[in-house]
Design a protein around this nucleic acid. Structure first.
Lengths: 252, 252
DNA sequence: CGACACTTTGACTGTAGTCAATGTAAGTGG
DNA sequence: CCACTTACATTGACTACAGTCAAAGTGTCG
C-alpha cells in the first residue's frame, strides 16, 4: 500500500468516490462506504486521447478499470486488415479482463477517455475480499454477454438498413438514459455520434459506403435528421425501432 | 431440503459426482468434497430429446444447470423468422442465466441432452455461500464472452468459405480435446457434426445452400473429407486453419 | 417399398462490396 | 483572409458474393 500511496498526485481522495458520476451504475456501487475506501486506496486515474490504444491483444495488460468518461471501442482484426468492433463501452462500464493476463482484443479510445484504474492483481485481491464486488462484476459480465449475443443476431441476420437503424436506436436509448426521461412515453431523442462512419461500419459488419447510403436513405424517409455533422435527431423512436427490425420483447 | 429429498428417484447420489465425467471441467470443479455434497443435495437430472426447448425467452426459467451430455443450441429469432444461433454448448458447459429471471434467447436440444440441474434460487444461494463457485462461474462467463466476440468477428467480417472452415476447425479442436492428444503436434482430426446443415447456416449467418456449396468446395480441395453423412475427417488442421483465416494468435 | 427429412446442385437475382470521384469541414501557414 | 492540406463523408457506376427459387439426390425409418 505504501508503494501505491507514494504517488499522491494521481491518488483519488476519499471524496472523489462520493462525487463520482458513475459510482452507482458501476460495479463499485455494490460496496459500502468502508469497503469503498479500500478500493479507493488502490485506484488511480488514467487519461487517454482519442485514438490511443488502451489495451492490446499482444501484450498482457496489468490493469483493469472503470470508464468514467468517454467512449472505448473493442476491436478484433483479421490478418489482412479486416476489422470488427466487438464492443462499445461508455462511462460506468468495466474495462479489462480479470483472471487472464491475455486480452483477445484491442481497446482503443474512440474519444478522449478517463478511466478509474486498478492494477489487475490488486483488483483480483479485492474481488476475493468483497464477494459483493465479484457478484456485481459477474452480473455486469452476464449483461455484456447478453449484448454480445444480441449483436450476433444483428451481424448474422439483419440487413444493412436494419443494422444502421439498430445502431442509431441503441445510441438514442443510451442518451435518453443519461438525459431526461419523458413521462414513460419517450418518443423522440437527440444524440451525438461518438464514433466515425468507419467505426460504424466496423461495428455493423458493413463498409463505410453502405453505412453512408443507409443514413442518407433514413434521412430521406424522415426517420432521422442530422443537425451539424454528428448530431442526430430521431423524431419517432417507434418508427426507428420498426426499421431496426427488433421484435417487441427486445430490451437492449 | 426435505422437499428436494422427497423425490429420491431423481436425486443424485454422492457417488454420482465422483464418477461425473464433466466434474473437473465444469464450474463445480471449484468445490471441495464437502462443499460438493451440499450442491449434490439440490441437484437433479433432467433429460431432453433432440428438438426439445430447454429454455424459452418468453417464460422465466426457474432452473440452471450443467450439461453432462449432448449439444445445446442457443437461438435468437427476428419477427419474420430469421434465426441466429448465438451459442453452441456441450458437456461441462453451464446453462441458464443467474440473477435474471428472463432469458434473452431460446435453448434447444440439438441432440439428446442430459443436464445436471438446480433450481435457480437454490443455486444462487450456493453461489453466495461458496465464493469459489461464483468465481468459477465468473471465469466461465468471461470465457463465453470471449467466444461470443470471436464469433462476432466471424459473422461481421469473414467470407462464407472462412466461416464454414472456422466452424469445422472449432469442432475439430473440440473433439481433439476430448479424444487423444498426439505428441503436441496434432495434425489431423475426425469428428461428427452435432447439428444439421440448417443449424450450421443459422450459426454462421449463412443459408443452408451456401453452407452446402462451401463444404463441397472444401471436399474438392481435399481440405476435408466426409465419411458417412455427418462424419468429417480433416487430414491437415494447419491447412484448414489457413482457409479459416485465423491469425496465429488465435486460441479459440 | 414409400414417405419423409435432410442435403446437394443448378440457374438466376439482388444486396452489399469495390473502385473512383466529388463534396464538406476543420485546421495550417503564407 | 484565402489557398492549401488533411481527414472524413457522400455519391455514382459497376461487380461479385451470397441469397432465392426450384429441382434432383441421398439416407433413414416405418
Amino acid at each position: 500500500m505504501d508503494r501505491l500511496l507514494s504517488n499522491s498526485a494521481s491518488l483519488k481522495s476519499n471524496e472523489k468516490c462520493d462525487t463520482c458520476t458513475v459510482r452507482h451504475r458501476a460495479v463499485c456501487g455494490a460496496l459500502s462506504t468502508k469497503e469503498l475506501n479500500h478500493l479507493n486506496q488502490i485506484a488511480r486515474d488514467k487519461n487517454f486521447s482519442a485514438g490511443d490504444v488502451i489495451l492490446s491483444d499482444e501484450e498482457p495488460a496489468d490493469f483493469v478499470g472503470i470508464i468514467t468518461s468517454g467512449a472505448v471501442k473493442l476491436t478484433k482484426t483479421l490478418a489482412d486488415g479486416r476489422q470488427q468492433i466487438v464492443g462499445l463501452q461508455f462511462a460506468s462500464d468495466f474495462l479489462g479482463r480479470t483472471y487472464n493476463d491475455r486480452n483477445h482484443f484491442f481497446a482503443e479510445a474512440a474519444t478522449d477517455v478517463e478511466i478509474c484504474s486498478f492494477l489487475r492483481h490488486d483488483y483480483e485481491v479485492m474481488l476475493e475480499r468483497f464477494p459483493e464486488l465479484e457478484n456485481r462484476l459477474l452480473q455486469h459480465t452476464l449483461d455484456e454477454l447478453d449484448s454480445a449475443r444480441e449483436w450476433m443476431l444483428l451481424l448474422g441476420r439483419k440487413t444493412a438498413e436494419e443494422k444502421v437503424a439498430s445502431f442509431l436506436l441503441m445510441l438514442a436509448k443510451k442518451s435518453s438514459q443519461i438525459g431526461c426521461h419523458h413521462n414513460n412515453a419517450l418518443t423522440f431523442a437527440t444524440f451525438t455520434l461518438p464514433i466515425t462512419r468507419t467505426d460504424m461500419g466496423d461495428y455493423l459488419g458493413l463498409t463505410i459506403e453502405t453505412v453512408s447510403r443507409q443514413i442518407t436513405r433514413l434521412k430521406a424517409r424522415k426517420i432521422i435528421s442530422i443537425t451539424g455533422n454528428r448530431d442526430f435527431l430521431v423524431p419517432d423512436l417507434e418508427k426507428l425501432a420498426e426499421v431496426a427490425g427488433n421484435d417487441v420483447s427486445d430490451i437492449n
